[in-house]
Amino acid sequence: MTPLETYTLRHGDDCLVLGQRLCEWAARSPQLEEDVALLNIALDLLGSARSLLSQVGDEDQLAFLRDEPAFTNAQIMELDNGDFGRTMARQLLVSGYQVLLWEALSSSADEGLAGVAGKAVKEAAYHLDHAHSWVVRLGDGTEESHARMQAGLDDVWPYALELFEADDVVTSLVAQGIAADPEVLEPAWRATVEKVLTEATLGVPSSDWRPTGGRHGLHTEPFGYLLAEMQHLQRTHPGASW
């Protein structure tokens, strides 16, 4: 795989896996408006995933027939939804990152990435607004919601740091004007997220623990179940069309 394909696949996997997780909320959300909103976000992410995976190969082969170590999403995408607070914390951190990522990639030297980014940036801005409004309402709502929101945030925070890792793939593509530079993204992301957390009366977590490995195929235990569920029909009926 070329560095560009590796990079494209990482972001495609991010969108696919988070989209799949959000689908688990169907019919389970706190109110009907959120069933609409969460599924809408899932649809946007799955749409981006399909565009990105298709630039690397066959979307269904990639989604349904790869084994766990071949998935290169960041681990934050695969974390269990937990309660609504934890889901919104994860969405704030991820959407805050994706807005900046897609903004940067919309002027990528690679046309394929730039095309996906140009569409995804508008969607991510909406996802960020949505997460922002819930994190603030839950953080500054009741005593219980504040505690739950903070706990969810503390849980997912360390995983966000993996989004800003740079390895040879990223560094070489940044030099060619293809990839977004994590060193530029991270401070801007912190500023976005910390502003929301302050408004939400939540503490900004600090963590020395930086879970890592997703970009190279190392995943959390719950991820195996996500894949087993997602892939089982394709694997049970090899070669069938759906």
Binding site: C23, N40, L46, R50, L53, E229, Q234, H237
Partner: peptide
Amino acid sequence: TRAPSLRRKVILVAKVQ
């Protein structure tokens, strides 16, 4: 979460939405 292709998954999510 078990839809057999990404196209079918997206169609089903949109329907439930």
